[in-house]
């Protein structure tokens, strides 16, 4: 059973999501990975504004392939989220409500998620061709020079994700592994 979610999020929706929930996300989300995160934090440190209003938004950690003619986007699966950990607590403080990626997050991110109310979703790593089918629009809105790492606004429809860490800090990686671990 999938939960249907609209992006941007609200804190009320965030609170209904539990680790292990399968969700379909529709609406607008923003892409950013290593280089874009570094630039965003540098901009904040200089006292400048972010290139988009981050309040209630979802960031998708992805660097897509170029789109073939007639396509909206190339393959676009998630990248490893942990590399963004150093930059994430600040963005959560500013109102970021959701992240889509893959892999564990560190303690500082999970604590900030609990403090400010945010959710961490996983998309299937290595399924970029399938995920591209859920993207209806793609527009670069900042850092054009970064190529695949530029910030894009994506309009997605029924984009399939699973809640990995919810706003209470429950973690599907830990829960799932415990259920299937064999100690002999």
């Amino acid at each position: 059973m999938n939960k249907i979610i609209t992006a941007p999020l609200t804190i009320d929706v965030v609170k209904t999501l539990k680790a292990g929930d399968n969700c379909l996300v529709s609406g607008y989300i923003y892409t950013a990975r290593d280089a874009a995160h570094k630039r965003m934090i540098e901009a904040l440190n200089r006292g400048e504004e972010l290139p988009f209003d981050i309040k209630n938004q979802i960031i998708y950690y992805v660097g897509p392939c170029p789109a073939r003619e007639g396509h909206i986007i190339g393959s676009c699966g998630p990248t490893t989220s942990g590399r963004m950990d150093a930059y994430t607590p600040k963005l959560l403080e500013l109102g970021l409500k959701g992240m889509i990626g893959k892999g564990e997050r560190d303690k500082s991110v999970i604590e900030a998620m609990i403090k400010y109310g945010a959710v961490y979703f996983g998309a299937i790593g290595g399924a970029g061709a399938l995920l591209a089918k859920s993207v209806e629009e793609s527009e670069i809105i900042a850092y054009h020079d970064l190529g695949a790492e530029a910030i894009r606004r994506l309009k997605v429809k029924d984009f399939p994700v699973t809640v990995i860490i919810d706003c209470e800090g429950n973690n599907l990686y830990q829960i799932g592994r415990k259920s299937f671990e064999i100690n002999d």
């Binding site: 893959k102 699973t162 599907l172 671990e181």
Partner: peptide
């Protein structure tokens, strides 16, 4: 036997 499973969701 580690139980990590597909995508690490357990399995």
């Amino acid at each position: 036997k580690l139980g990590i499973g597909p995508q690490g969701f357990g399995g």
